[in-house]
């Protein structure tokens, strides 16, 4: 029956889209670590990889959108789901942009800040990963969304704290002002991933309530 067939196709595409975003978050974490370890080849490989993933995510979200409209699926939640996918797609776009900036500017990160950037990257990765888990729950068990959303907020707050500490340490150091400004910019760049994850989480909280009523 084509009704169930088209639903299965979209279900699969949404799953694949979320896999792609989760994989993007992993690539982000390994890319940041590779950069900090000066593993140049590994870092460039992650840039190529994130480009492919971002492209795939774009294609998948467009296909989902077209299927939802052409088959008039989930009329009640169509707008919410498309908004959710668009904002989740922003995470992988931000990951790509962040890694690309590292590749373009190649900032010199002094050893004393290495651990700070590593921790910031980890917190941002965790926030992105947690929001993908919440998004999956929205589709399968809306009551479970609330249980996973707190993790996203937790890691976003953690990323905020790490970033704040890191920026203060940078500006308290003896580095030149231009260097300090560049390092602050990169702290923001990494932290932004968790901000994007939180934006998705805020929407999910409302959509889950709507779905449960």
């Amino acid at each position: 029956m084509s009704l169930f067939k088209s639903s299965r196709i979209v279900e699969k595409q949404i799953d694949e889209f979320l896999d792609t975003v989760a994989e993007g978050a992993l690539v982000f974490r390994s890319g940041i670590n590779a950069y900090l370890e000066s593993a140049r080849a590994e870092f460039e490989a992650s840039i190529i990889e994130i480009g492919k993933l971002e492209n795939r995510a774009d294609i998948l979200s467009r296909e989902v959108e077209s299927h939802l409209y052409s088959h008039s699926l989930i009329p009640e939640h169509r707008g919410d789901v498309l908004g959710l996918l668009e904002h989740t797609d922003n995470i992988i776009d931000t990951v790509k942009m962040s890694l690309m900036q590292f590749s373009v500017e190649h900032p010199v990160i002094p050893d004393e800040f290495d651990a700070g950037y590593r921790k910031l990257g980890e917190a941002s990765y965790q926030a992105a990963d947690a929001v993908v888990v919440s998004t999956r729950a929205f589709f399968r068990d809306a009551t479970a969304v609330k249980d996973t959303l707190f993790k996203v907020h937790h890691y976003e707050k953690e990323a905020d704290g790490i970033s704040d500490t890191l920026k203060r340490a940078i500006f308290a150091s003896d580095l030149e002002l231009a260097h300090k400004t560049q390092l602050r910019y990169f702290a923001l760049n990494v932290e932004r991933i968790s901000d994007r994850a939180e934006e998705v989480a805020d929407r999910l909280a409302i959509y889950a309530i709507k779905r449960n009523t």
Binding site: L3, F4, S6, S7, R8, V10, E11, I14, L73, I74, H77, V81, F138, F139, R140, D141, R211
Partner: peptide, 9 residues
């Protein structure tokens, strides 16, 4: 707990 799309179908 069916998937949102399966429930829709």
């Amino acid at each position: 707990n069916p998937h949102l799309l399966r429930l829709d179908a």
